[in-house]
Amino acid sequence: MGNIVFLALRLLRLVWARIPEKIREALLGYGLLFPVLLILGAFVFWPLLEDLALSLFHGNLGNLFKEFAGVANYKDLLDDPVFRKAITNTAIYAAVSVPITMMLALSLAVLLNSKIRLQGFFQTSFFLSYITPTIAAVVVWRWIYERDHGLLNYYLGLIGVHGIDWLNSPEFALPAVIIFSIWKYVGYQVVLFLAGLQHIDKQLYEASQVDGASAWARFRDITWPLLAPTTFFVLLVSVIEAFKVFDVVYALFPSRPGGPLRSALTAIVYLFQTAFEGFRLNYAAAAAFVIFVIIFILTILQRRVFERRIYYE
């Protein structure tokens, strides 16, 4: 048995050696890419087409392609107040959390970029919240946000603010999600900004220091313009991440994903509920396609910047 395998392998090697090199290289290329194309085909390209097809039909769990609906699902979506609420919430979440996180991260990165000790310690502590698994972090924050004994209200009580019901009042649900995400992502952005800052030529700062420029002038005239590619890149990555938010919202309000009165309902949570709790798969497929188009536009912007950035380096 061992002999046969051995002989077969030898034969294969002989045959392989006789194939012209160009063809061998091509065969090897297709061979290496086979698993990649198989998985991407089955779980990205095919689903994209299937999603589009589903969205053009009316159907149910038993028969998803029951009758052709044209753009009826899309028309219904435009009039659906819950969908509009989900998109609005997501946009608000992105518009508030992303700039705050970025300003904070940029300031911290600038501070870290000066000659200071413990740089490694600070970076590690900031990064710890990013690396912590989301659900475990959310569980801690549910305790922090608790109304009567929660730690956030305890500390707010010390400065005279009492009884905010973070997780059960419609006004505070989305802010609770935003505060969490700032805590979670600021450290990651610090690392990205710091990398950008370290690419800036130190001599520029030395020259301006000799000229007597103030710290603010140095930031305005050197750091900010030269950091622009990094900033724009971080901005777009974060906005896209914000549009995909799911875990936090789902786990922060476990009894009613989407928060009290849907005040923290975001796009992907809406998608999940419509498809897998309401079982309106065709309708949800249309919603998914709309969300995809929104993210796609943001991603194209991001890629453009990204390619330019690689070009520079």
């Binding site: 290289e25 091509a26 290496l32 194309l37 992907i268 998608l271 498809a275 998914a288 991603t299 890629r303």
Partner: peptide, 29 residues
């Protein structure tokens, strides 16, 4: 490596960067 069709396959692979897994939940399910 160099082989026929490489450029198209490369573009197709890169293209998937623009498609987040979250929006493909339903067909993948």
């Amino acid at each position: 490596l160099r082989f026929p069709g490489q450029h198209i396959l490369w573009l197709a692979t890169l293209g998937t960067l623009m498609i987040p897994a979250e929006v493909l939940l339903i067909p993948n399910f």
